[in-house]
Design a protein around this nucleic acid. Structure first.
Lengths: 149, 149
DNA sequence: CTTATATAGATGCAGCTGCATTTACACGAG
DNA sequence: CTCGTGTAAATGCAGCTGCATCTATATAAG
C-alpha cells in the first residue's frame, strides 16, 4: 500500500485557506467592517449571552494565545463592542460582555461574511463533493486514532 | 437538492490549517530553524537555480504582496541566504539568487518540515481518505466553473 | 529629445504578534 | 497568619504586516 504524501493535502489546503481568507477579509474591509478575528470574539460573546465569558475561556474557544485575547479584548472594548466586568468570586479575573453595539456590528458582519464565504467556496464543488469534503475535514477535529492516552 | 453550507467546509478547514501550521512551526522553532515563509522563498529560489528569480516572480509564486517579498528578501539577505544581483536589461529590477548557506538551511528545514507534516496530517486519515481529500482540495486550485472568461 | 504613464522595488508609519516578564490574586501547607 | 506555588490577565520590547507613498527606471506618444 502506497503511503500518501501529506503535502498532497497540505499544499492545496494552505492555498485554499489563503484564498478564502483573502476573499472574505477583502469583502469585510470593502464594507468598512472589522476583520474575522473581531468577528470570532464577538460571536463567542454573543453565544455566551448574559453570562459573558472569561478571557481564558475565549482563549480555548478561539485558539488564541493569552496575550492575543487580552489585546483583542482591548481593541473591542475601545471600539465599544464589549465591556469588562469585575468577576465576583475571582479577584484576578474579569467577565467580558457583549454590548448592543457589538451585537449590531456582528450582525452586519455576518451578512457580508456569509455571502463572501458562499462565493468563495460553493462554486468549486458539487453538493456531493462539498458534503464529502466537509466530512473528511471534520476528521481533523477529533484527536487522531494514534493519540491514545 | 439541499444547498451545502460553505461553513461546513470553512470551519474545519480553518481549524485544520491552524493546527497543522502550529505543529510544523513549532517543530521548526524547536530545531532552531526559520519559519515556513523563509522556507517557501528558499525553495522557489532553489528551484530557479542559477537563473535566480525576480522579486515580482516570487510575488506571484508565493502569493505575497510586493512589500512582503521585498522585506522577506531583506531578511534572507541579511541572514546570508540569498544575494541580490543587478538585473542586466532592466535597471529597476534585480535578480535574487540562493547562496550555498541558503540551500543548506533549506535542506535542514526540509527534514524537520516533512517529518512534522507527516505527523500532523497522516494519523487522521486512511490512505484512501487522504487521496480523496487531496483530490477534493485540488479543486480549489483551478478557477471555479463559474469563472468563465 | 521631451513628456506622460506604467512598472520594479523600497520605505515611513501605524498597528499587530510573539516572547518574556510582571502584577495581582488564589490556594494549600505549615 | 505567612509563605510558596499556581493561575488570570496585562505589558514592554522587538520584529512583522498593511497601507500609502516614494524613487528609479522603462516605455510609449508626440
Amino acid at each position: 500500500m502506497e503511503t500518501p504524501d501529506p503535502f498532497d493535502i497540505w499544499l492545496p489546503l494552505a492555498r485554499a485557506h489563503k484564498s478564502i481568507l483573502a476573499t472574505v477579509e477583502a469583502a469585510l474591509k470593502q464594507a468598512g467592517l472589522p476583520g474575522l478575528d473581531w468577528y470570532d470574539m464577538l460571536w463567542e460573546l454573543e453565544r455566551a449571552g448574559n453570562e459573558g465569558l472569561r478571557p481564558y475561556e475565549l482563549q480555548q474557544k478561539l485558539l488564541l494565545p493569552q496575550y492575543g485575547v487580552s489585546r483583542l479584548a482591548d481593541r473591542l472594548a475601545k471600539a465599544g463592542y464589549l465591556i469588562r466586568q469585575e468577576c465576583s468570586g475571582d479577584g484576578r479575573g474579569q467577565i467580558l460582555l457583549l454590548t448592543a453595539a457589538g451585537a449590531e456590528t456582528r450582525a452586519q458582519m455576518w451578512t457580508v461574511y456569509s455571502e463572501a464565504m458562499q462565493q468563495a467556496v460553493t462554486p468549486h464543488f458539487s453538493p456531493g463533493e462539498a458534503r464529502r469534503l466537509a466530512e473528511l475535514l471534520a476528521k481533523f477535529l477529533r484527536p487522531s486514532p494514534a493519540d491514545k492516552i
